[in-house]
Design a protein around this nucleic acid. Structure first.
Lengths: 222, 222
DNA sequence: AAAAAATTTTACCATTCGGTAAAGTTCAGC
DNA sequence: GCTGAACTTTACCGAATGGTAAAATTTTTT
């Protein structure tokens, strides 16, 4: 499994996670842990947790399997680390939606931020998609607590916007789901889009931003 | 792994696929092959190909592993069989879109058929999603040939509808992708929707049909 | 430059996994 | 109710997989 992604940088490359508790990472640790996280992202996002092997990850990271296990105690540990870093970033765009701002502007900005994530961090998106499609057993807590509270909160905000006549009257939950669906689709189903348009485009996201934005402008119009 | 799905029936339950070439399936064969296909659908859709084991499948089918391998020569063979039956069905709704019909009516009917598949055959949808998210290595031929030709064809039809002023002028490919995204989302990301709305709804598809239909009515309006 | 700490390699191991051989059992047609 | 075919079970096997022990090497600190 070859991968040489440097641009855009992996979401997870500059982490500093303790090997034990709060030791001050050496040069070699930083380097190897970053390589492992990037390799793990590559492998897990392409094969899911059960479908990925430590051999694949260690090979992609350019180190031996026992050496990899010197930095992380288990396959699970790598996966947990990867997800926990991702989830914060995944939540950010929704969190940034400002109740004080203009309804249209805020929601369109949210759509745009999600489209950016989809374009710049497709592996992260697929890592997440793999988890969800397979029943989300390892991020149940995140979904039921963190994401749920934030979603409920922002759904309320959207509802007040609608009450004020700033937006079309729609179910706020389904509205957000539809944003998730349409933005993530280009990253998660990238393979399908590329294969089905092989002769017409090289960039699977080609035209996606304009299309999705124009569609949501229409949907949101009061 | 328990599963007792009888309603709706699995898309694959009434198949008659030859063990060798064209033998006339016995009673026991029909029964066991159907059980295997249903079990395989359950397991593969929940874990992906590499993440699934023959032990899981044989246990879910209620037979021993060697007995399972009496009916299918390999894990691959089960998976191929499952996918090849699914793909026909998956293509049908798009194929049914009639160039002679009314643009709005035809496209809205397409949306409705896709929503029905999502609601009635979520496992099949997730089986497909698993394949695509992981790079679609086993259905490349289908995507590049069958799906691509049909998509190109129907994109042309949509374009003539737009030229005739029956629809808003949009990129037909992105329009179809958006239908795929929004309809399949409810099946593929079912786990997320359920967890995030655990206290509010029991049916993850609750309100989805109305929402998606109303959104596409808006999008399509000239 | 010696000692201590951190890192890497070598050589394993137990379990799981996909798959096979062959004996045993059940079933359908006569 | 006998016979051949269909089906099922038992007992395996080799490869892959997650993981460990401990020796060997490199790096950092003193």
């Amino acid at each position: 499994m070859e991968y040489t992604s440097v641009d855009p940088p992996a979401l997870v490359s500059q982490l500093d996670m303790p090997l034990e508790k709060t030791k001050p990472r050496t040069r070699i640790q930083k380097q190897n842990i970053a390589a492992i996280m990037d390799a793990a992202l590559e492998v897990f996002s392409a094969n899911g947790f059960r479908g990925s092997t430590l051999d694949q990850i260690s090979q992609a990271a350019g180190i031996s399997k026992p050496n990899l296990l010197y930095y992380f105690n288990s396959k699970q540990a790598i996966h947990v680390q990867l997800l926990s870093e991702l989830l914060d970033v995944w939540l950010a765009p929704l969190r940034e939606m400002d109740p004080q701002g203009d309804a249209q502007v805020e929601l369109m900005a949210y759509v745009r931020r999600k489209l950016e994530l989809s374009r710049n961090f497709p592996r992260e998106s697929r890592l997440f998609a793999n988890e969800i499609v397979q029943g989300a057993p390892r991020i149940e807590g995140f979904l039921k607590n963190d994401l749920k509270s934030l979603l409920d909160e922002q759904a309320k905000v959207i509802r007040t916007w609608m009450d004020d006549g700033k937006l079309a009257r729609l179910d706020p939950y389904h509205l957000i789901f539809s944003i998730w669906a349409m933005t993530q689709h280009y990253a998660d189903f990238d393979a399908q889009i590329r294969m089905v348009r092989a002769d017409q485009i090289t960039d699977s996201h080609d035209g996606a931003e304009e299309f999705v934005e124009s569609v949501f402008r229409k949907i949101l119009a009061p």
